[in-house]
Design a protein around this nucleic acid. Structure first.
Length: 484
RNA sequence: GGCCUUGUAGUCAAGCGGUCAAGACGUCGCCCUCUCACGGCGAAGGCCCGGGUUCGAUUCCCGGCAAGGUCACCA
């Protein structure tokens, strides 16, 4: 069987949109599942939109997500160059466009922007235009004349107005449209660069791409691609259009949502593996009901026939859950490395950050959650004494005061301030007084943290705080409670 | 507006003529527990509507409706 070749063909315009990431991922998985090749091609045919540094972002994202390409600008596989502006400079696209002109499948167009503008109509607030084939009627001589005069031109595809065109998508099946629907799209722009539509077809063919994986927003332009392949006499690749990813309002994910790009998500404290895993399940499902997959496992599992056709909402809540799963399963050293900046952001005192990191590991979903859990270590927050009320612990400010008064001398004598030793001491005290553990621990923990919830129990907190600071806080609490 | 696509709980999503209609997130309850979280157990919640075909439709067909996509010298 022929080796599968897929490609990821981003245009360097900024951060990587999660829709594009998902498309790249599926392209990668489809190829790798069958031991094929995954190619990276940079589509920089729009000099206006090009953003500096965007190519680096692409490399960086692919590296972080693990989608390593077999061929690309930095890895020649014999199909180069892999950057379209370089290919354009070699005259590749114009050469092929001219072939089409020869065959009558394309034609020169000299229409001015003004004339094109006049062709537009507005429907429901949307500008719509279909070219009227005005320049198709130009004679060969007129064209030559115009070219000689140096008139700006574009080359357009010449689509028939009658008949129908059918194309096949692996997921959506056969789709047939009337040729009248097919616009004479521009192939070569007046600046000499090819349009995306044209460059894509030419390069996919020249690079031997067997499976074209793309977003389903291209579904309606697909028939025009087919006509191009047929005009050239090239074999049409296998098309796989992926369902759209939408925001919570079921609209195409846009930059405004704040989490539309991979980099946005990383900035927000998500880890690459979780994002990749989550995004893989947006529009695809494995045979089993497993949900946590590493990239390697996805490669093994991925059957593109199981890609769904309906659009999927990008649910941040579930992504967060999944991120939390990854954090919990992560080995401690890596977790600590990731958590350290967030810990240091709030804690400047010489506490054992590793112990704190460990407390927080099973309690957060994204890294920035850490801050809200641990700020009390650094500085005792203000709190209301009503916090000493706890129904289930049978604790009140009064009982708390008495427990604290009992316990402070015991703790003052305590030498070993480790969690286990402290717990032993307090348990013994509880047994003597026939107090339940919670009845003792609730006031202590409150006095130490001023928080209803903490990422650890009272004794664990004391271990981190140390004897001096713990007693200081406990005494302050007694004072606070006595004042009432 | 034309064309294309989609339509199973709030969300992701199995299903491919006969199922008590999987599973996950979220929500709620219980258990565990020095609080919370983790973990465990459980609950509520769904096949867009109308016609067919069929002994039987979530599943097949037709028609509605709804949503999204697309109609650039952007990709």
């Amino acid at each position: 069987m022929e080796k599968i070749r897929t490609r990821y063909a981003p245009s360097p315009t900024g951060r990587m949109h999660v829709g594009n990431l998902r498309t790249a991922l599926y392209a990668y998985l489809i190829a790798k599942h069958e031991g094929g090749d995954f190619i990276l091609r940079i589509e920089d045919t729009d000099q206006e939109r090009e953003v500096e540094g965007a190519v680096d972002i692409i490399y960086d994202t692919l590296r972080q997500t693990g989608l390593v390409h077999d061929e690309g600008p930095d890895k020649d596989g014999g199909c180069g160059p892999y950057v379209q502006s370089e290919r354009q400079a070699k005259g590749i696209y114009l050469e092929y466009a001219k072939m089409l002109v020869e065959k009558g499948e394309a034609y020169y167009c000299f229409c001015t922007p003004e004339r094109l503008e006049s062709l537009k109509t507005v429907v429901n607030g949307e500008e719509i235009m279909q070219y009227d084939k005005h320049c198709l009627s130009l004679t060969k001589e007129e064209v030559e004349e115009n070219l000689k005069k140096g008139m700006p031109y574009v080359i357009r595809q010449n689509n028939p107005r009658e008949g129908q065109t059918t194309f096949h998508d692996e997921l959506y099946g056969d789709i047939t449209v009337d040729n009248a629907e097919l616009d004479d799209m521009v192939l070569i722009k007046s600046d000499g660069f090819p349009t995306y539509n044209f460059a894509n077809v030419v390069d996919d063919h020249l690079m031997g791409i067997t499976h074209v994986v793309r977003g389903n927003e291209y579904l309606s332009s697909a028939p025009k691609y087919n006509r191009l392949y047929e005009a050239f006499g090239w074999r049409v690749p296998v098309y796989i259009h992926c369902p759209l990813i939408t925001d919570e309002n079921h609209k195409k994910l846009s930059k405004r949502s704040g989490h539309s790009s991979f980099e946005d998500l990383i900035d927000q404290g998500y880890i690459p593996e979780a994002v990749v895993n989550f995004v893989s399940l947006l529009g695809w499902s494995p045979e089993s009901d497993r949900e946590i997959f590493s990239l390697e496992e996805l490669v093994k599992e991925f059957d593109y026939h199981r890609i769904s056709k309906s659009p999927a909402v990008f649910d941040m809540v579930k992504l967060s859950w999944m991120n939390g799963e990854y954090l919990k399963a992560m080995d401690f050293d890596r977790f600590y490395k990731l958590a350290e900046p967030y810990l240091k952001k709030v804690i400047t005192k010489p506490y054992d950050l590793k112990k704190i990191a460990n407390m927080v590991k099973t309690r957060i979903e994204v890294l920035p959650d850490i801050e809200g859990h641990i700020d009390f270590f650094e500085k005792m927050p203000d709190y209301d004494i009503s916090m000493y009320n706890h129904k289930k612990m049978k604790s009140t400010p009064e009982t708390s005061l008495s427990v604290l008064k009992d316990v402070i001398p015991l703790l003052s004598e305590q030498e070993d301030f480790s969690n286990d030793a402290l717990f032993e001491t307090l348990k013994k005290y509880g047994e003597e007084k026939s107090y339940k553990t919670g009845f003792i621990m609730w006031p202590i923990r409150t006095a130490l943290s001023g928080r209803e919830m903490t990422p650890a129990g009272a004794t664990e907190i004391m271990e981190v705080l140390g004897k001096e600071e713990s007693l200081k806080r406990l005494n302050a609490a007694v004072e606070k409670l006595s004042a009432c």
